[in-house]
Design a protein around this nucleic acid. Structure first.
Lengths: 234, 234
DNA sequence: ATGGCTATATATAACTG
DNA sequence: TCAGTTATATATAGCCA
């Protein structure tokens, strides 16, 4: 936008286009950063360069446009009684599709968070560069998993009122942290019922207090594996 | 950037910040569109507004990070025979989740394309500003629908070998366009079997050649409604 | 809050080395 | 191809209705 007003159209000249691309992408990213700083909003921009593997999957630009122009030229339906007219039908379809899409998007977010969680667990990913939203989602998922652990523990505690000496679960109440981990030794753990197909992990986090009346080996349940298929357990 | 040089920092004033946000987001999106048109690159920008349901659901930034640092500090499992160790398990889980995610992403793309298609049909959306990938996807979907139409027609043609004079489908062979539309009059159409619950649309596109031996009213099948629930038909 | 308006700050097209 | 320069086109901050 200088020296000449460029018309908004593909730049045929190859080097000119690449030059423009570099300049404008830089400017765009700068503005994006400014916006996020000025208004403190979460934002991201994704711009695939022409070099990156572009899905050149299909016909010519002209052919594609032609097929679609025809599509566009379709007129709206004529009305007909006892039947939904095309416009109403289309609206209905769009809403249905959008519902499905929203549902999938929710599910995808959960999947992505779960992937991150597992990667964090295996040490494959660091938390350093995650943004606020990702961290929040991850935290929510962790909280949910923790709650599931608690609920499971609760159930077990109730079921084990007739203690035969092999009980492995004890509530830890002497800490105001809401998320105390429930503990058990590996040995006794392995004698337990199948509700304990949940993974039991050793932990060495000094921030976690391992309460209990007897000297127990510090094992804790993994919060990652509550809803997954057997037979994966340790 | 006008009237005064603003320093690059968070804008404390509430309404000023929101105004700036609206203006700049709009400008950013415009530039993004320009870039994708000028250079024909795939690009997208994501900007969460401050108003949009930002999951402020949870504690402070610090608190969130703390929970997650703990998570990060979890050590890798010790090995155990007969059981998958945690790292292997985690890798397995990650792969499973990523498979699900990829599947969902494919499905989402199809859904999005279908939405665009329906919106184009109802005139709610123009093709003008769709980028190459969207157009390509849409074209692929249109082609698939057309093929489905053709297959259906083929079947019907075969089934109607004993022509009673009411046949409504004729192959149009005198045009080298691969996607000739099959034609029928509204009157005869309505007498047809239920394979024709597909929508029949009037069309006025001069580029489409309506062949046929008799003077038929130019109706054509909609390519949008082959896979959808009855009783939507015209 | 929203939609102009105008003066300026920025971005950038064309050019140069 | 790239970096720097310059003249213009755009974006937008502060105001007003």
């Amino acid at each position: 936008m200088a020296r000449k007003k460029v018309k908004l159209a593909w730049i045929p000249n190859d080097s000119a286009r690449r030059a423009t691309f570099r300049k404008r992408r830089k400017g765009l990213m700068k503005k994006l950063e400014e916006l996020s700083i000025l208004c403190d909003v979460e934002a991201c921009g994704i711009i695939y360069g022409p070099d990156e593997p572009q899905p050149e999957v299909w016909p010519s630009k002209a052919g594609t446009r032609r097929v679609l122009e025809r599509f566009k030229s379709m007129p709206v339906m004529e009305q007909s009684k006892k039947m939904m007219d095309q416009e109403g039908f289309t609206r209905h379809q769009v809403m249905k599709l959008q519902d499905q899409l929203r549902k999938h998007e929710r599910e995808n977010q959960e999947l992505e968070t779960a992937i991150v969680m597992h990667k964090c667990l295996s040490g494959e990913q660091s938390l350093e560069y995650m943004n606020m939203e990702e961290l929040t989602n991850l935290a929510i998922m962790v909280e949910a998993k923790l709650k599931a652990v608690h609920d499971r523990i609760e159930l077990i505690s109730v079921q084990m009122t007739s203690n035969d000496g092999a009980i492995v679960v004890q509530q830890n109440n002497n800490n105001n942290n809401n998320h105390q981990w429930e503990l058990a030794t590996m040995e006794t753990m392995q004698k337990q019922q199948t509700w304990f197909t949940d993974v039991i992990n050793p932990v060495n986090d000094p921030n976690v207090y391992y309460g209990g009346e007897e000297a127990m080996q510090p094992y804790m349940m993994s919060i990652t594996n509550l809803n997954i298929d057997p037979p994966y357990w340790v």
